[in-house]
């Protein structure tokens, strides 16, 4: 059974409820946005959309950080691991990490400070806020 979500950007889209990714605490600044789906932008770019199901007007452009910063790594604290359903060892194929892109003013930047970590199996996600002030909120994507 598909749910239909009426989005300003894509019109009416069909959402498979078994594909929904749940954020217990929402995205930062969007506490009421807890259910999202990930959609590819197109076949030519690695861009994806994190489309909110609760509030169809909210969507984020996201990308695999390896596309913009090959050396990027995220250290996920244990409480966060538990929160998104990992109690034991985690295999790499169970983890997806995205960073949010901002295209404000026609410049593409990646928010490396607050990556989204997803438990692919359980479809539970969390937007991590990294403590290190040296990690940029706006990493320019010019020379990726």
């Amino acid at each position: 059974m598909m749910n239909v979500v009426d989005t300003p950007r894509w019109g009416r889209i069909e959402v498979d409820p078994t594909k929904i990714i749940h954020f217990d605490t929402g995205m930062a600044g969007f506490p009421d946005c807890s259910d999202f789906v990930v959609m590819d932008h197109d076949r030519e770019t690695p861009l994806k959309w994190l489309q909110c199901v609760d509030r169809p007007e909210i969507s984020f452009v996201i990308i695999d950080p390896a596309q913009v910063m090959p050396a990027y790594t995220v250290d996920v604290p244990e409480p966060v691991m538990k929160m998104i359903g990992w109690n034991h060892e985690v295999r790499p194929e169970q983890v997806a990490v995205f960073v949010v892109l901002n295209c404000e003013g026609g410049n593409l930047t990646a928010n490396l400070r607050a990556p989204v970590v997803v438990n692919v199996q359980k479809r539970l996600a969390f937007q991590l806020i990294l403590d290190d002030p040296a990690i940029p909120l706006r990493h320019p994507i010019k020379h990726s």
Partner: peptide, 16 residues
Amino acid sequence: AENQRAADAARSHDPA
């Protein structure tokens, strides 16, 4: 604030 701005900008730009 960065999430808010990213969501706002995503509405009006073509990221591709």
